[in-house]
Amino acid sequence: MNRKSIIAYPYVIWMVLFIVVPILLVFYYGFTVDTGAGAKFSLENFRRFFEPVYLMVLLRSFALAALSTFICLLLGYPLAMILASKDFERKNIMLLLLIVPMWMNFLLRTYAWLTLLEKKGIINSLLSALNLPTINIIYTTKAVVLGMVYNFLPFMVLPIYTVLSKIDKSVIEAAQDLGANSLTTFKKVIFPLSLPGVISGITMVFMPAVTTFVISRLLGGGHYKLIGNLIEQQFLSVYDWNFGSAISIIMMIVILISMGILSKYEEVREGGGLL
């Protein structure tokens, strides 16, 4: 039987060359400093990251991503519930319409908001035509959050919808028969059962939001540096690979740990089930 594993070897070689070696190189650069006479082992890059300037960037990235994730959940959960409800007509078309923007190029979607939010953009022309005060949110954190919510909302709705539509309707009916009102039914039955979907929705929104550098660059105008912008800058303009690698390592560890915790939680939920 084991002879057959040979056909995986081309991939294994590819994997070592282009997944393992690059990650090892990131670790190598992260843990060394260039002394001029060659690389030397050092934790200097990590120490530097804990300087207030950089910690602020990390904090800001997490705050903005958390806020966007929260807004996505707030907007997305009701939508998922409506789409999953039995009496909602044209369900398939609505789902398709939800997926279509996801298939459109990410850059173009972000660019669309650039034209809408501009100082003399469409929203402001409409507002001034109606004699209303214009809004100036382009190149602010508000625009960045808006861009994140816009880009990642479908990623929140779809997993919640999937879980909600699989809930056994008789469980809900049982709760109602036992005298629960709709709020109690939601709190005690529907929401707990939908948690796996909520968690994968949160992961699918939070992870790309926290590492983005495109949205913050285009809609934030480069004033609001996020962790992704910091990494990009270290590699493409400052050429400090050592520091850039250290930030990447921290980012990678934080993300892999949170993914691990979330997936554990999901398993417990699924395994626990109703009984």
């Binding site: 926290v210 590492t211 850039g244």
Partner: peptide, 15 residues
């Protein structure tokens, strides 16, 4: 799959 794209990107660039 799990790593942020930016890390996959910079690690390949270093390589």
């Amino acid at each position: 799959v799990l790593n942020p794209d930016i890390i996959t990107g910079v690690s390949l660039m270093i390589l």
